[in-house]
């Protein structure tokens, strides 16, 4: 089973200076804020590895490839992916933001040649969080698509996919290949690898492939969001005071 997980390393938005939001354009350099994995992508990466572990355990062949669209993938991220158990990290050499069609085109052009058994991706990823890319990949590859996935278990050549949709769980049995978009999942953290294992992964480098991306969508405008409200601080000397103040602030609701 060839498992492909699409992921993205994003600036840590909480570390960006407010001024940079005020003057944000597509070219604004946010590198100083550090890079982290998108939270849904991180779940997808770990779910991919768990699938691989389970398949290997039951004597089936399995390989995991992490796939990203980025000119600058920090080395520590690719290293941690290799060390965690990815057999390959593929880096398509283009930066595409705010254009889900183009992102999906480039990723699926690569995946077509792969070809995958399963494609996993985070339900959405910043900057745009469009949530459109995984479904568009499924369209382009002509594969079944499952969104809001919490977990995937291998099941005699098939997969049992747990989706949480609105007020219900949908437990779906499906035969690969398919595309799954991982949403809010209890599997939230990519495993850490021991330093010994990291060292044994040695100098594995991501496979960088050229990618011709279309020019960015023009006429996009950005505005920093200002969520400030006029705040009244209510004094509370004790937690009992605080409880009373909450009820007071709620007014008609208590």
């Amino acid at each position: 089973m060839e498992i492909y997980v699409c992921f993205k390393a994003l600036p840590d938005f909480e570390q960006v200076f407010p001024d940079d939001w005020n003057q944000f354009t597509l070219g604004t350099d946010l590198d100083y804020a550090g890079r982290i994995l998108g939270s849904f992508d991180e779940s997808a990466l770990e779910i991919g590895l768990r699938l691989k572990d389970k398949l290997l355990f039951s004597g089936e062949a399995a390989r995991c490839t992490a796939l990203t669209l980025s000119r600058r993938l920090p080395a520590f991220i690719s290293r941690s992916l290799f060390a965690a158990g990815f057999d390959e990290v593929v880096q398509l050499d283009a930066d595409v933001e705010f254009n889900p069609e183009e992102t999906a085109r480039l990723l699926s052009d690569f995946l077509k040649s792969a070809p995958p058994g399963m494609v996993l991706a985070g339900l959405q990823a910043g900057f745009a969080d469009s949530g459109a890319v995984p479904a568009l990949i499924a369209c382009r590859l002509g594969l079944p698509f499952f969104s809001c996935v919490e977990s995937i278990e291998p099941l005699d050549g098939m997969a049992e996919i747990k989706r949480s949709v609105d007020s219900e769980y949908r437990i779906v049995k499906a035969r690969p290949p398919f595309v799954a978009a991982v949403g809010n999942s209890p599997v939230s953290t990519l495993r850490a690898a021991t330093l010994r294992h990291q060292l044994s992964c040695g100098n594995k480098k991501p496979k960088a492939l050229p990618a011709d991306s279309a020019p960015p969508i023009s006429a996009l405008h950005f505005q920093a969001r200002d969520e400030r409200r006029e705040t009244t601080m209510l004094p509370a000397e004790s937690s009992a005071d605080a409880a009373i103040m909450i009820l007071k602030a709620l007014g008609g609701f208590s």
Binding site: F13, V16, F24, S130, H221, F222, R225
Partner: peptide, 30 residues
Amino acid sequence: AVSGLVDVSLFNGMPCAKMRAASSHLDLFR
């Protein structure tokens, strides 16, 4: 596909889709 539209706003006289971006630090107008 233009997703996550929260409102339609006029920007330079043009109706634009207003969306959240960068974990809601930004409003994006397309």
